[in-house]
Amino acid sequence: MILGGYGNFGKRIAESLCKLSNITLLLAGRNSSKAEQLCRALHQQGARATLQAAALDISDPFFSDRLKALSPDLLIHTGGPFQGQDYRVPEACITAGCHYIDLADDRRFVCDIKTLDQSAKDNNVLIVSGASSVPGLSSTVIDHYREQFTSLDDIDFAIAPGNQAERGEATVRAILSYTGHPFPIFQKGQWTQTYGWMSPSKRDFGPTIGKRWLADIDIPDLELFPERYSLVNNVRFQAGLELPFLHLGMVLMAWLVRIGLVKNWASMTKTIFHSSELFKRLGTDTGGMQIQLSGTDKNHQPQTVLWTLCAEKGVGPYIPTLSAIILAKKLISGELQETGAKPCLGLYTLREFDREAKGLGIYHHTEVKHG
């Protein structure tokens, strides 16, 4: 089952999984007509899976009972924003004996999913949160290059989507929820504080993407990585909008929250989302992701690894879906046997990512500098 199966990310996961034979794919959400419409479209594209539409609303007080009646083996939750959501969906999956994967990027939702660990183990299911660009892909990249360091001191990474790339209203609401609000980050070996969409800077993503404006963004990695990579001194993440006037407008909005003139921009999501769509034809459909790791190599000399991913021709929105697709296929094939509840860390390899990404034209390259 893909919950939110006709949404921005759900439909992309459906496009991939419908190519598998001998499975039934349930496209679920509040609007059954949209689910049925996507089922028809996927059939016309040559889907090999059996496709069904299902009306399902997570706010329904009988959601758990309705889920159990549908009896899926695996549920992929794409129905964001996850900011402020409780664990009713993964808890319902545990009760139904159903594996669960989500694309959450909310810090508390992803980091605290481990509170369900024992319950998930008792019911022999796997509950994975954050199977997206972060922390799913970001941790996979860091794990891949971690062996090249005797000590890893700094993790500095960023995401820069193209302005023309398709985006959903839920994503905009999630971003606005922490714009201008404080959150903790790990710097110089200790916890300090920064603010959402502040501390603007520019980063060069290479000749294809160019230089992009960035700002501080709150994600689960900022809390998960200091623990996972125990000797790291600094963990920093930024993201931004391609068009400078939109990006710097977000910085101004963050400043207005910080000085108390605005409480929370999330209440104006619809207006802000539709306003941003007016500029959709500006900019490009090219985006990327960059991870810079600094520390010492096996000869105890300074070393920097710079990994850059590029997505052209509007395929950027597929990147957040690939972690969930990889894990779903591993569960379907029986390759993934783990149980319990955990953030998406160490559950797949960079080679497995490349296998899914290459068909979309998503590519990456690595630069290693010594000294």
Results as ranks from 00 to 15, higher is better:
2 I>P: 04
5 G>N: 09
5 G>Y: 04
6 Y>W: 07
6 Y>V: 01
7 G>M: 06
7 G>L: 07
8 N>D: 06
10 G>N: 03
10 G>L: 03
11 K>F: 00
12 R>E: 08
13 I>S: 08
14 A>K: 08
14 A>L: 05
14 A>R: 10
16 S>R: 15
18 C>G: 05
18 C>A: 10
19 K>H: 06
20 L>I: 11
20 L>F: 08
22 N>R: 11
24 T>P: 06
25 L>N: 04
25 L>W: 09
25 L>Q: 07
26 L>Q: 05
27 L>V: 09
29 G>T: 03
29 G>V: 01
30 R>H: 04
30 R>W: 04
30 R>T: 03
30 R>Q: 09
31 N>G: 05
31 N>Q: 12
32 S>W: 08
33 S>E: 12
35 A>M: 08
36 E>M: 12
36 E>C: 08
37 Q>H: 15
37 Q>D: 15
40 R>K: 13
41 A>C: 05
42 L>F: 02
42 L>S: 01
44 Q>T: 15
45 Q>E: 11
46 G>P: 11
46 G>T: 13
47 A>Q: 13
48 R>L: 15
49 A>D: 02
49 A>E: 01
51 L>A: 10
52 Q>Y: 00
53 A>N: 08
54 A>Q: 12
54 A>N: 00
54 A>G: 02
54 A>K: 09
55 A>N: 10
55 A>I: 02
56 L>R: 13
57 D>T: 03
57 D>E: 05
57 D>Q: 02
58 I>Q: 05
58 I>W: 08
59 S>R: 03
59 S>P: 00
60 D>T: 07
60 D>V: 01
60 D>K: 01
62 F>H: 10
63 F>M: 05
63 F>N: 12
63 F>K: 14
63 F>R: 09
66 R>M: 05
66 R>N: 12
69 A>C: 10
70 L>H: 09
70 L>Y: 15
71 S>M: 11
72 P>R: 07
74 L>C: 06
75 L>Q: 03
76 I>M: 02
76 I>L: 12
78 T>S: 11
79 G>W: 00
79 G>H: 02
80 G>H: 09
80 G>C: 08
80 G>Y: 09
81 P>H: 00
83 Q>C: 00
85 Q>I: 04
88 R>K: 08
89 V>S: 04
90 P>N: 03
90 P>Y: 04
91 E>Y: 04
91 E>G: 00
91 E>N: 06
91 E>M: 09
91 E>H: 02
92 A>Y: 10
93 C>P: 06
94 I>C: 09
94 I>F: 07
95 T>E: 15
97 G>S: 11
97 G>A: 11
98 C>P: 13
98 C>N: 04
100 Y>R: 07
102 D>R: 00
104 A>M: 02
104 A>P: 04
105 D>F: 01
105 D>Y: 01
108 R>M: 07
109 F>I: 02
109 F>H: 08
110 V>N: 06
111 C>R: 10
112 D>V: 02
112 D>W: 01
114 K>P: 02
114 K>A: 13
116 L>H: 05
117 D>S: 13
117 D>K: 04
119 S>N: 09
120 A>P: 12
120 A>H: 10
121 K>V: 14
121 K>P: 10
121 K>Q: 15
122 D>R: 15
122 D>P: 13
122 D>Y: 10
123 N>Q: 15
123 N>C: 11
123 N>E: 11
123 N>G: 03
124 N>W: 10
124 N>S: 14
124 N>E: 13
124 N>R: 13
124 N>L: 08
